[in-house]
Design a binder for these strands. Sequence first.
DNA 1: TCTTTTCCTGACCGTATGGTCAGGGTTGAG
DNA 2: CTCAACCCTGACCATACGGTCAGGAAAAGA
Lengths: 221, 221
Amino acid sequence: MSAPERLSKRDAIRRENERIILAAAEKVFAEAGFGGATMQLIADMAGLPKANLHYYFATKEELYRRVVRQIFEIWLHAADSFDNAPGPVEGIGAYIEAKMDISRRHPFGSKVWASEVMHGAPVIQDYLETTLREWTEGRVAVIRRWIAAGRMAPVDPHHLLYMLWATTQHYADFGHQIETLNGGRALSDRQWKAATESVKSIVLTGIGAVPRPEDLSNWTS
Amino acid sequence: MSAPERLSKRDAIRRENERIILAAAEKVFAEAGFGGATMQLIADMAGLPKANLHYYFATKEELYRRVVRQIFEIWLHAADSFDNAPGPVEGIGAYIEAKMDISRRHPFGSKVWASEVMHGAPVIQDYLETTLREWTEGRVAVIRRWIAAGRMAPVDPHHLLYMLWATTQHYADFGHQIETLNGGRALSDRQWKAATESVKSIVLTGIGAVPRPEDLSNWTS
DNA sequence: TCTTTTCCTGACCGTATGGTCAGGGTTGAG
DNA sequence: CTCAACCCTGACCATACGGTCAGGAAAAGA
């Protein structure tokens, strides 16, 4: 879209500091919640004085809002897998893979989003009612088309989407619990792949998009 | 177990006040998070002076701990559906129904638990490592037996359990998002039933416990 | 170089929080 | 009836929080 423009030193500093602050804030908000997070904690994690945070982000709420919107954007992009897919096996399969990948790469953002929604979405309610609703209805239409074309069973599209969100985000939001049940170790590359395949297999079989469970021999232990 | 014993007035007062405080705390912790919740807010919701809360519960942490353990106990009991079931259709089916029912009846507790785990389980880590681990391994063994008996496909038992937890708890933890996508209205009796059937259908079909998707005609809108 | 704009931060402020405590009221056993 | 044990609470305290601000340093335009 835009050429790799030459940045003035000031612009570079601003961009870099905002990046550092947002990353620190994402982690602290995820680990302590909005109420439990303090600007001092975020400042320490970012390696900057607290007053400097308030120079870039006027209030705690504004900083939080930016963090929440960031993960939301990432999730919206994951939907590209959904469109332009010939059928549910490719579309939903790719979507599950994309969402699982995000759960692994952005666990903090996922937790912040979960926390925000659980608390009644005080700062992104408008997004839920506009962007998310439109996005959802678009995918619902796609699923309905696949059903009409006989490519999958007549499952309720909304509940299917909830299952996809719930299952994939669970690996980020409840990662600590999964880690504990995994002997206190984070999931390995192999285990993440097994988890993804397991979810894909159950869901795609469950909605009748895959006729016979063929490659279901993915064991963890 | 115990006969309906006669309570002294003091015991009755203590029991009733603890109940009121715990109910208020569950709601406030769910809506504001541990860090965002204040003893004053809980006191107002309970209709008691703040100092009275500290008479029954020494610290905010102790009150919080009691709330978290409460929902954990409820979830453990839901597992009774799992045992003594002849196969996955009855066992897992009943478990899904029980967990969906809990999501509807105890949405606050579910959110408090989710929040606790997301923040690294600071106060119930020992429970995760003992009670939850034992519980999980027990159900894993049951699932393995069903697989060995050819009553379901060889799915990874751990990932299946995660899917059950994620999907059912999603209706409590992300209830606000679901409500927004449902036109701002809470799910009706009919919709809750449809959600439960949808989850049961996809999962049981997905693990090969149900040969053919027969009753998949559950639509929301 | 001079001047303006932006970046940076130590010190500070008002407020709200978790928790305490002294003292008064109530209950029930002996 | 007596009195110890328990229940209750307004007033208070130390702390930590989000946010402000004056003033200095550095960059960029003129």
